[in-house]
C-alpha cells in the first residue's frame, strides 16, 4: 500500500520534476559544454567547474531551480489534496495518518533529490574525471552546491507545512515557508564548521517533519 501511495505521489509531481530536471540538464549540461538548448547558453565561454565566486552564475541558477522545484513539490502535495477534497478519500485508507504523510514526504524528497542531488552528482563526477576540463577539481569545491540541496529540502518541508497549515489569511499561513527559507539561507552562509551546517539542516528538517505530522493530525480537512 505504501508503494501504491508512493507511486501516486511521484506521478502527481512528475510534471514539475520533469520541467525542473530539463532546466537542470540544460544549465549543468552547459557547464559541461553540452547545453540542451545551445543558443540560451551562448557566449559564456570556458568556466572552471565549482569555482567559488565565478561569474557564470551557475551555482545561483542551480540554487534557484532547486528552491522553486522544492516549493512547487511541497505546495502541490499538500494544497492540491485539500483543495480537491481528495484528502478525505486518502486519509480514510487504513494506514496511520503519520505514515501517509511520511510516505508523501518520502516521495517529495525522492523527487527533490532527483532534480538536485542527481544532476549535481553527475556534474561533479564529470568535473572529477581527468581530461574533461583544464582546471583543478577537488570534492570540497562542491560543498556550497550541496548546501543548496540542503536549502531545497528545508524549503520543500516549509512549503509542505504551509500547505497543510490552516490559517485565516495568507500572511500567517506562509510563515513556515518564509521562516524555512530565511533559516536555510542563514545556515548556508553561517561562518561555522561545514559539518555543523549539515547537522543544522538535518535538525531543521527533523523539526519540520515533526511539525508536519503534528499539524496533519490536528487539523480539520475540508
Amino acid at each position: 500500500m505504501r508503494i501504491a501511495l508512493l507511486s501516486k505521489e511521484l506521478r502527481e509531481c512528475a510534471l514539475y520534476a520533469c520541467l525542473a530536471l530539463l532546466v537542470q540538464i540544460h544549465y549543468l549540461g552547459a557547464g559541461m559544454g553540452l547545453p540542451l538548448i545551445p543558443f540560451l547558453d551562448a557566449g559564456r565561454g570556458f568556466e572552471i567547474p565549482f569555482l567559488a565566486n565565478n561569474n557564470s552564475g551557475r551555482e545561483t541558477t542551480f540554487t534557484m531551480i532547486v528552491i522553486v522545484a522544492a516549493i512547487a513539490f511541497g505546495l502541490h502535495q499538500s494544497v492540491w489534496e485539500s483543495w480537491r477534497q481528495t484528502a478525505l478519500f486518502l486519509l480514510h485508507r487504513p494506514l496511520p495518518q503519520s505514515q501517509i504523510f511520511l510516505t508523501k514526504l518520502a516521495a517529495g524528497g525522492l523527487l527533490l533529490l532527483g532534480v538536485s542531488a542527481l544532476p549535481l552528482l553527475v556534474y561533479s563526477l564529470w568535473a572529477a574525471t581527468p581530461g574533461t576540463h583544464a582546471s583543478p577539481f577537488f570534492w570540497g569545491m562542491t560543498d556550497s552546491w550541496w548546501r543548496s540541496v540542503g536549502i531545497a529540502v528545508i524549503c520543500y518541508l516549509g512549503a509542505f507545512l504551509t500547505g497543510i497549515r490552516p490559517a485565516r489569511w495568507l500572511g500567517s499561513r506562509t510563515w513556515p515557508l518564509i521562516a524555512s527559507v530565511v533559516l536555510a539561507l542563514g545556515l548556508k552562509y553561517a561562518p561555522i564548521w561545514p559539518a555543523l551546517i549539515y547537522v543544522g539542516f538535518a535538525g531543521l528538517a527533523a523539526g519540520l517533519i515533526g511539525l508536519i505530522i503534528d499539524t496533519a493530525q490536528r487539523r480539520e480537512y475540508p
Partner: peptide, 9 residues
C-alpha cells in the same frame, strides 16, 4: 465524503 472526491487524473 460529500461530492465523492476522486483523483481526477
Amino acid at each position: 465524503a460529500e461530492g465523492h472526491p476522486l483523483y481526477s487524473w
